[in-house]
Write a protein that binds this DNA or RNA. Structure first.
Lengths: 212, 212
DNA sequence: TAGATTGTTAATCGATTAACAATC
DNA sequence: TAGATTGTTAATCGATTAACAATC
């Protein structure tokens, strides 16, 4: 289906396309032209047509794109309909924030289990998700095919936990620890980092620059 | 000091440079060549020299870079020594995770106040940070020059809170809500988004692609 | 000094934008 | 049909890589 390797610049824009198309869809918009979408997203029409054409011709000359259809196509491209599963490691504040508030379901994931060491949490559940002791990780993953491990453990535990997830064969790690995981040790695992510090420092640069 | 507009590709790499240099510094490394740093970061030596030369000549021929000095220079460039201040809006799980666990201080920020509507929190403090009622926001910001507002409120409140922060004259908004803020309404405010959903969907794409 | 490594200029590569024939 | 808008090819722009003289 796909012609060549899709550049990561394009891939990073896909979730934004999805988000905007979903908003339009929910708002009842039936069709949209690349020009109109570009304007509302702050991109160029050319870029949108170029990006989408990596995956196929979803539009129609003289008409534009059907919002519902395009939204669905982008969802498919992003793998949102593949019944991905996730487990989360670490049920501290951040872990709990994700467990209780992040809409895994509407992003195509089912959050199946949480792991922690806190005896007051283990055996219970959070937001409908059972909490197991971290020692049960291998046993659990052995029996439950899991796509992604979400890492919200304290920094010192991060690398070890990543290794254990990799050894159990997860496809990806969603890394919230401010630690660089050893990708070269786990070539087969895709790692996506959410580095809060990098983000804040970028903002710090931007606001500092203004005042030079 | 700076010649021209620095490209955002370069800016996004600066925090990673800082992180690596800080690790090296803490580990006691005194000097490093662009080649060695490149290898450990998965970049090219050319790129590192090119990036750094945007800001000045920090190295020495035949020697490389002094780690402590370069770490300091990058920190300065990032604005880490400008005594930035921040307030956080929303002390739910995510807000609390940031208040209690995120090292604002070592990223050059002082987290001065939190705002929420929960009567059981207002008037108290979290992680040493006083919690005020959101109604007190304007009063507080009027009296306390604040660089950044951290947005960890529920999605429906996000845009309104962003407007209020902008009106009070913050320089930047660190946005954790899955909402696109109206940048065009607040040209003077720099917005840095941490879109969890975009990040997870990127990972979803990467692991799905493997299995085509 | 000789070897190493920078900062910078030139060459290459890739991504974005523009243009336009195809066509709904 | 005429107007609008796509998908795609070509042109431009920008970012990365390579090369090398300068020099510590």
């Amino acid at each position: 289906m796909r012609k060549e390797k899709i550049s990561s610049a394009v891939i990073r824009r896909l979730p934004r396309y999805y988000r905007h198309l979903d908003d339009l869809y929910r708002g009842g918009t039936v069709r949209i032209s690349s020009g109109a979408l570009a304007k509302s997203m702050g991109l160029t029409a050319s870029q949108i047509r170029q990006d989408l054409s990596c995956f196929g011709g979803f539009g129609q000359q003289g008409y534009g794109y059907n919002v519902e259809r395009l939204r669905g196509e982008v969802a498919d491209i992003l793998g949102m309909n593949r019944a991905h599963t996730a487990v989360i490691l670490g049920a501290g504040n951040l872990g709990r924030a994700l467990i209780e508030n992040f809409p895994f379901q509407s992003n195509g994931f089912r959050l199946a289990a949480a792991f922690d060491v806190d005896p007051s949490l283990v055996g219970g559940s959070l937001g409908g998700v059972p909490v197991y002791h971290i020692d049960e990780l291998e046993g659990y993953l052995g029996g439950h095919k899991t796509s992604v491990g979400v890492l919200t453990v304290p920094a010192p535990a991060a690398v070890d936990m990543a290794r254990r997830l990799a050894k159990c064969g997860v496809d990806g790690i969603w890394n919230f620890t401010n630690v660089e995981l050893p990708q070269q040790e786990m070539e087969q695992v895709r790692i996506e980092d959410v580095h809060f510090a990098d983000s804040l420092l970028t903002l710090s640069y931007m606001i500092s620059e203004e005042q030079v």
